[in-house]
Computed example of a mutant assay.
Amino acid sequence: MKACPDIADYAIDGIANWRDFMTTAAQVRAFLGISPSAYGEAQAVLGLETTAVVIACILQRSEHIQSAGGYLRVLTEKARTGEFSVGPMLMACLKGVQTAPQAIGA
């Protein structure tokens, strides 16, 4: 949540646990225009929790990503061949959040 705080804006009743996080990520998937097939394939390759984390990271960096669905498919393929790990992606998001300018009064 520290690395990808924007996902909390889409949670209906907040995010208190992994179930809430994964439910919110599924809703964000549709918002980002990621197809059910790309999402399902990612879940099959990455796992449910990791896919939710990747969706949160994609949302956090969405202004820099032209096609969220295409990006998820590329990451899924990289994971399939052992070329992707979510750790560096999460660390990049955390670093981006920490260096982002803060709102006045924040």
Rank of each mutant, 00 (worst) to 15 (best):
Y39K: 09
Y39Q: 11
G40E: 11
Q43A: 12
V45K: 03
L46R: 07
G47C: 12
L48F: 09
T50L: 02
T51S: 10
T51A: 13
A52F: 12
A52P: 12
V53F: 12
V53T: 12
V54S: 02
I55Q: 00
I55T: 08
I55E: 02
C57G: 14
C57K: 00
C57R: 01
L59Q: 10
L59Y: 05
Q60M: 06
Q60H: 05
Q60K: 06
R61S: 09
R61I: 00
R61W: 03
S62L: 00
S62R: 10
S62D: 05
S62G: 03
E63N: 13
E63I: 13
E63F: 14
E63P: 06
E63A: 14
H64C: 07
H64Y: 08
I65P: 03
I65R: 06
I65H: 01
Q66E: 07
Q66W: 04
Q66F: 01
Q66I: 02
S67A: 10
S67K: 02
S67R: 06
S67W: 04
S67L: 01
A68L: 01
G69I: 01
G69A: 03
G69S: 01
G70L: 02
G70P: 08
G70K: 03
Y71S: 02
R73D: 01
R73W: 01
R73L: 01
R73N: 01
R73V: 04
V74N: 12
L75I: 05
T76F: 04
E77Y: 07
E77N: 04
E77P: 02
E77S: 08
K78S: 12
K78Q: 13
A79G: 08
R80A: 07
T81S: 11
T81G: 03
T81Q: 11
G82Y: 10
G82P: 06
G82L: 11
E83V: 13
F84R: 04
F84T: 04
S85Y: 09
V86L: 03
G87H: 14
G87N: 15
G87E: 13
P88K: 08
P88R: 13
P88N: 09
M89R: 03
L90E: 06
M91G: 06
A92F: 11
A92M: 05
A92K: 07
